[in-house]
Amino acid sequence: MSSELPDGWTDDTLTHAKWAEAVRVGTLLGQRCRSCDHVVATPKSVCVDCTGRELSTIELPTTGTVYSETTIEVTPVGQDDRYQVAIVDLGETRVLGQISGDVEIDDEVSLSGHVEYEGMPGPTFSPVE
C-alpha cells in the first residue's frame, strides 16, 4: 500500500514541517538514534551514523556555545541587509542560527526566537549575560 510508512517510521517521525512548527514556538527538536545514541539537530530518515531506522524525536537544549560565527554583509534578496550567523554547539549536536546581538566563538547563547524567510523559520540565538 502506498500509504504505508517505510520500515521503522511512525507518525511521530520528525519531519521538517514538525521541526519548523517547533522552532516557531521556541523549541528545538532533533533526533536520537535508539541503536547508537547519535544525535542530530535536523531531521533525517535514518541515523546518519549507523543507518538505524529507530529514531526518537527529542527536545534539544536551547542553550549552547558558539562554535563558529560570521557577520554577513552581502545578503540574498529577501533577507535583511546585515546579520550575524553562528553554528551553535548544543553538546551532542550543532545547529545554525541567526544571532540577535554580537557574539564570538565560545560565547554562551540561548534560543531567543526565530526569523522567517520564504515561509520557513530559522532559529535565533542571543548572548547569555
Binding site: W19, T42, T70, I87, V115, M120, P121, G122, P123
Partner: peptide, 17 residues
Amino acid sequence: RQYEQPVGLTFPGVFAL
C-alpha cells in the same frame, strides 16, 4: 533549503564559518 537558507547563510558565509 530548510535549515540554512532561512537563517540567511550565503556562500561567503559558509566559508567564513
